[in-house]
């Protein structure tokens, strides 16, 4: 996240179902909500239900309803996208 890209960020979404985009990074406006690129990743990687999933960047959970800028993200951004920890069963 150390490059200067004007009003854009370069994004890659990493999941256990694959990586979006297939190669490199996607350039998106920094004021775009994070969920937009996640939806594109879901569609491309055939991920059908992301209820309970979380997006993490460099160990920090981000708010996917807010933009990259609002999440204080810039430059190159790798989003780890996957289900949050399960609930213990009290067995």
């Amino acid at each position: 996240m150390d490059q200067h890209l004007g009003n854009f960020v370069e994004v890659r979404v990493v999941t256990t179902a694959g990586v979006y985009p297939e190669a490199g990074f996607e350039r998106v406006p920094e004021n775009q909500p994070v969920k937009v690129v996640l939806k594109k990743a879901d569609d491309k990687l055939h991920i059908t239900d992301t209820t309970g999933w979380i997006a993490v960047v460099a160990g920090r959970k981000i708010d996917i309803e807010r933009s990259f800028h609002e999440n204080a993200l810039n430059g190159r951004v790798e989003i780890d996208w996957g289900p949050d920890h399960g609930a213990g069963g009290d067995a």
Partner: peptide, 19 residues
């Protein structure tokens, strides 16, 4: 459900361990 693929289960475990 996508939460319960092998990758989904591993990811849930990893997030629990990261707690």
């Amino acid at each position: 459900n996508a939460k319960f693929t092998l990758g989904g289960i591993l990811t849930q475990l990893w997030h629990a361990w990261k707690q």
